[in-house]
Design a protein around this nucleic acid. Structure first.
Lengths: 151, 151
DNA sequence: CTACATGCAAAGGGTTTGCACGACA
DNA sequence: TGTCGTGCAAACCCTTTGCATGTAG
């Protein structure tokens, strides 16, 4: 699950390069946070990244971790599981359907697709646990959030 | 987006029937919360369900809404967007991949599938906004949470 | 009648913010 | 050296919990 050493170095290089291009200062803290998330095989929350980095940078604070993660997210260098900055939301539609999710504002729209409904789980995934359903998540920007909408 | 009237009634019937079967009392509040979420075309959060129900049941409290929603979720009568009870989690893997998500504990594991990578967005969805990527979410229970693991 | 559900209010936990100090460029 | 980033602590918001009262079965 953890990336190979060379893949890890490639990711870190990319972080540094893109941060520099974006005019973001490469502080000791930011570099260590990048290293931590680049090397994480699972999908850590802010707290566990904080703990990992604190082993190397004892004075780091949790809010710096948050601020750095949102920066990386803005630049598209990392992703979130689920929808960023969102409270829990409920879906009363129990029929099989799929979602278009705006990664900026969190708007989620249902859609139906017989092709997607037919998807089969790869055999390797069946060893992960009991599969309940397969849902396709189309991620992007909704019309309100897409840059072209804003003249 | 909102369900047709007969589909709405069917959903409400199902809620009542399943709640009764589960031995959950059909209080005025619960029935109105069911009606609210059954009729919601979008994916409301607890607060907006609360507001909708409060128009008809002015004395209802937000915690009752939460408690009812978790009950409905336990019974599989509704779903959540994203992972229930979860804090925000980050993904340093920017390569195209897919997720197996445990809906109970929130564990999320990556997997790769060339078939899934090739999925094409239905044309109707392209009118929703700008598509960034397509990710398949396999939902189920991980080995730790699956009932059979617990003897 | 009795067990379970509700409303209230206060606690809890994750995330954000204002401000003065510190460090990259 | 100037500007941006950091650490601290308090604020903020969503969600949960304890307890006395109310109500469905």
């Amino acid at each position: 699950m953890k990336p190979e050493t060379d893949e890890l170095e490639r990711r870190i290089q990319r972080f540094e390069c893109e941060l520099r291009q974006a005019g973001v200062k490469l502080t000791h803290q930011r570099l260590e946070i990048c290293r931590e998330i680049a090397g994480a095989g699972d999908h850590p929350d802010a707290e566990s990244i904080f703990k990992g980095v604190r082993a190397r940078v004892p004075t780091i604070s949790l809010d710096t971790v948050y601020r750095t993660l949102w920066t990386l997210l803005d630049l598209g260098l990392i992703n979130t599981l689920g929808i960023p900055q969102e409270r829990m939301r409920f879906d009363g539609n129990t029929a099989l359907h799929h979602h278009f999710v705006c990664t900026r504002c969190g708007e989620a729209r249902d859609f139906y697709s017989e092709d997607f409904d037919k998807l089969q789980v790869p055999t390797c995934v069946q060893t992960y646990g009991v599969v309940n359903k397969i849902q396709v998540e189309v991620r992007g920007l909704c019309l309100r959030c897409a840059p072209t909408t804003d003249p």
